[in-house]
């Protein structure tokens, strides 16, 4: 990624507060078209709040969000989806009382009435990414395992045909075996042109798959850089990759 790359997402001095508690205190972050960006940091660093403000789940207290060059600060989540930003939320949030297929149909909510055929095709394509979901297509989403629910949440997000996919805590509660399956799918999607912003507590996974990584603590970005470089950076090794003995 070079300096002339155009940003798909530009977040400037973003602030999020809950009452008097400031969760995000001026974060600036860029995702360029085609990039796979990671955000790591410990629990409570403000990562989720930042994502929620970007995706329109929360209204930021300050700063700005621009998506594909247009100011989207304070836009609502359904408006962001319509603009081409989909978010896979922390904890998956699949519609547990509906079938896998209905979850996928709802993922394409905004165009299923006007283009049912196209949505059907997209569902087939998306299921090819996750064959396990194909087997469970008629099951209630609530009966799926955690890993399968995460696949469904990603698939559901993809069905809105996003240009930027935002994922919050992909690894939460999932076995390494599942993660070894999920991360390559994301890498493939990224290679096909999808920009991805991934918030991840498992720093080792995030650093392995992303191009660049931001490190957040206490609602701020501490530093950022190429993921390959950060994977060897002392500060990252000590705080997030569990290297001991050096202070």
């Amino acid at each position: 990624m070079n300096a002339s790359a155009s940003p798909i997402l530009f977040v400037s001095d973003l602030r999020v507060s809950y009452g008097r508690i400031e969760a995000v205190r001026g974060v600036t972050l860029t995702v360029n078209k085609g990039e796979f960006i990671g955000v790591i940091g410990s629990n409570g660093a403000g990562k989720t709040s930042m994502l929620r403000a970007i995706a329109g789940v929360l209204r930021p207290a300050g700063g700005s969000v621009a998506f594909e060059g247009a100011d989207t600060t304070g836009a609502k989540s359904h408006q962001m989806v319509a603009r081409g930003l989909a978010m896979v939320p922390e904890g998956r949030m699949v519609f547990a009382d509906q079938t896998v297929r209905d979850n996928l149909v709802l993922g394409a909510y905004s165009r299923v009435a006007s283009d049912p055929k196209g949505v059907e095709e997209d569902i087939e394509k998306t299921l090819d990414l996750f064959p396990r979901l194909k087997e469970r297509i008629a099951q209630q989403a609530g009966t799926l395992s955690g890993g399968e629910q995460q696949m469904l949440a990603i698939a559901r997000g993809l069905l809105s045909r996003p240009r930027l996919l935002v994922i919050d805590e992909l690894s939460l509660g999932l076995a390494p075996k599942i993660l070894d399956m999920l991360f390559p799918v994301l890498t493939d999607l990224n290679r096909q042109g999808l920009s991805i912003l991934l918030v991840e507590q498992m720093a080792s996974y995030a650093l392995a798959v992303t191009h660049r990584t931001y490190v957040m603590e206490n609602g701020r970005v501490l530093f950022d850089g190429a993921s390959a470089d950060l994977a060897g950076d002392d500060r990252v090794l000590d705080a997030y990759l569990g290297r001991r003995g050096k202070h």
Binding site: A55, G56, V57, K76, S77, H78, V81, A82, A86, M87, P89, M93, V94, F95, A96, D97, Q98, L106, G107, Y109, S110, R156, G157, S160
Partner: peptide
């Protein structure tokens, strides 16, 4: 079921 999740799939 979940208002936030509904918003995230584009439902107003």
């Amino acid at each position: 079921f979940n208002r936030v999740a509904a918003g995230l799939v584009g439902i107003d």
